[in-house]
Amino acid sequence: MSDTQWPRFYVFKQDVPDGPHLNCGSIHAPDIELALLNARDVFVRRPACVSLWVVPAEAIHRNPPAGEAEDQPQPPDTAEPFVVFLKADHRQPHQSAGEVEAVSAEQALALAEAERSGERWVELWVAPAASMLGSDPADQAAWFAPADDKPYRHGSFYHTETAMRQLMAGGSIDES
């Protein structure tokens, strides 16, 4: 990595319990722990989040392939879980779609594709579960709920419309 070019991590946010994790963007961080902390500050300033995941960009393998051959490490002998992300169509972000057990990313992609042969999708991603970091459910109150306590982040907190109506009608504003 170089001065401001830190590794990239894709961020997935779960808005409601039992819902999927949706890709909301990416951030740069020098390591995965800071990536998770930074993701919270960048993507969860307003409510509607119960869980956050960060995935190193280099850990994601995609189908259809990105176009460049990536250096493939020696596949391990044992299977490991890969999290699957699916992009249903061009307008939707990638969203989490379960896990598959596989010995390599290629196998994981093949399995995920086979499992979804009847479905419409435009792109599949898989990443080793071990490469990801998620927020601790026990941290939910500390990490995400405080966003609820800052009503001044919402336009409705400011009564400019009422004040404008009073002024336009030639009156003065109500200071309450």
Partner: peptide, 11 residues
Amino acid sequence: KIAAEERYHLR
């Protein structure tokens, strides 16, 4: 209330 936010600060 403060403790909830402080937990994140400390981390």
